[in-house]
Design a protein around this nucleic acid. Sequence first.
DNA 1: TGCACGAAACGGACCGTTTCGTTTCGTCGA
DNA 2: TCGACGAAACGAAACGGTCCGTTTCGTGCA
Lengths: 218, 218
Amino acid sequence: MGLDPGRRSIGARRNPDSADAILDAAEAVLVEAGYSGFSIEAVARRARAGKPTIYRWWPSKAALLFDLYQRLKRVDYPDTGNLEDDLVGFLKSLFSHWRETSSGSIFRSLIAEAQSDATVAAVLAEYTKGRHAHTGQMIERAKARGEVAADVDSTLVADLVASFAWTHLLTNRLDEDETTLRRAVGYLLKGIEADDAGSVDAAAVRRRRRRVVGRTTR
Amino acid sequence: MGLDPGRRSIGARRNPDSADAILDAAEAVLVEAGYSGFSIEAVARRARAGKPTIYRWWPSKAALLFDLYQRLKRVDYPDTGNLEDDLVGFLKSLFSHWRETSSGSIFRSLIAEAQSDATVAAVLAEYTKGRHAHTGQMIERAKARGEVAADVDSTLVADLVASFAWTHLLTNRLDEDETTLRRAVGYLLKGIEADDAGSVDAAAVRRRRRRVVGRTTR
DNA sequence: TGCACGAAACGGACCGTTTCGTTTCGTCGA
DNA sequence: TCGACGAAACGAAACGGTCCGTTTCGTGCA
């Protein structure tokens, strides 16, 4: 929370009831009216608060959304000793959290807001960097167990996983069943290439990489 | 274009110059002022057109954006005979198209707009479904060549590839070099799991799939 | 004569800010 | 110990501004 930055001496303190009422109202407005109906005026009305009070503590609509999101966000980064289960568990946890709380709407709104406000984009980038680090650790653990190749870029893998989650959030597809999640994770872990004949050994299969420069046709 | 639906008899026809001027102005405004500055008023001002003229032909800001996007969109779906090259080529083509024309800004705006307007979301979903079909065909071709396992869900793979593209668009990361793209595609094609010892054959490596039910810990 | 056009204006919503009177709460002196 | 004082936060109202989507008007083309 952006509380009490430049307090000098005496005077009334920030009213925590008011702050709570505003956050509660913000969440309610977002859920009931959606992102398009989410305005500072609407939040103030609902919270029976003055607009200046909101602007005093939150510099922008996005700051309010961020506080709102962090008030809810609790997602598991499982550690089962098996990367597939870790990733599937993470996605399941994230999707249901987004689905069943207002977190989904909030995060969607933040991403949308970031498209028209560079400041929000920067903060969001910082935030997701931290999140990717968590996911990356799951992969690094698997690497340490010898489950994942040593030269794998765990940041990039985390990026791929998060991308999947983001797009499904943005396109209202948070209802994927576990089978689909497991399949998607499976592709990432084991690839989609055919096993060829059973006689060819693994290394050879993977080494068969044509580096054709590939003039792209229309 | 949403042109001339209920024309009855005589009278002045739609002025194509005006339509072009509006689309040109819309593109210019979007590029110069960004999505936050992209308003019907601004477009009308720039095009020296009346707002009613715009509203007459485009029911919403999003419809204008769609027309704008389709005026530019030309992306390659390469067919090199090798899936990795196809996918990398596709991503390269898409990223550079988004980067070097106004397409990127336009599509970003469309996605953002879809977050606050269900109609736009529906149209966008329809559109992307068509695009995924194109990507899916690349995978199906590879399947026909025996390059990809027969039971792979090509729609889901297309979804993963598109997700990567979307997030990079939305987070201003369209400048990935070919190496990174190739790596990302490689993970999807070949997986990230370790090859284990060189002695183990491919099928065995891939068959070693632990289906642990995996109680997720905190 | 019918329709598209540009221009102007409409009421309404929201923006971010300012003004006002009130309330809350440290502080300091009596 | 207590009450006056002042700084700061508060709710309410109003500001000028922008944009929304619509209506009205006069002009011009077919």
